[in-house]
Amino acid sequence: MLKKRIIPCLDIKEGRTVKGVNFVGLRDAGDAVELAKRYVQEGADELVFLDITATVEKRKTLTELVRRVAEAINIPFTVGGGISTLEDAQAIIRAGADKISLNTSAVDNPELITGIADQFGNQCVVLAIDTKLEENGEWMVYVHGGRTPTPLRTLDWAKEGEKRGAGEILLTSMNNDGTKSGFAIDITRSVSEAVNIPVIASGGAGSLEHFADVFRETRASAALAASIFHFGEIPIPTLKHYLQEQKIPVR
């Protein structure tokens, strides 16, 4: 039986991991390669590296980190953050990443999804969507790390991303991110039922029950979290054991 995936996310700045709380206020949580290896030992099913470095040397630093990670770990990993051209994607994939995650650059240039998918296959393209519930009750797409609203409705953008060749959707609820109050069940359910590609639920994980809830109440294939794993609040083996007891298939 296909297992539900548990994915730690490592926010990367200049080769080290950081985690934003509600996308602001960063805390240092250690060396990226060492942390990645620890997660593999603990039973993480995949890893996501999100680069938030904003310097000119960014691409070179990131490519070098991807190369080191690929040498060190034996599970799949995704790299995202500022990948805005086919050449960026090629460099990251050739360095050993399994998937590329696109966010702002996909909204600015949806052709990029198709371009990468055509060259490397749909499974290489993860469409990352930061979504926010507006006062009018609509879940809207935000870009630039959640700072900039767009006129895109989340459900429409998810479907368009699938049509353009994305192989997976990483859906982060900005309302829930950093709150530890649980995943955004309603939008995760809507998106996961509207598309036929895997959806990764993200934002809001704070307890074991939150993971069971999102897998029971939505069609999500995976759940992603950062700080609760980095600071050891929920060890991955504890989470896996709990989900198994709850009859949710995990590795």
Partner: peptide
């Protein structure tokens, strides 16, 4: 077949 989640992505027995 259509209607299911594809790709088959992840860990399986």
């Amino acid at each position: 077949p259509p209607g299911e989640i594809v790709p088959h992505m992840g860990w399986n027995n």
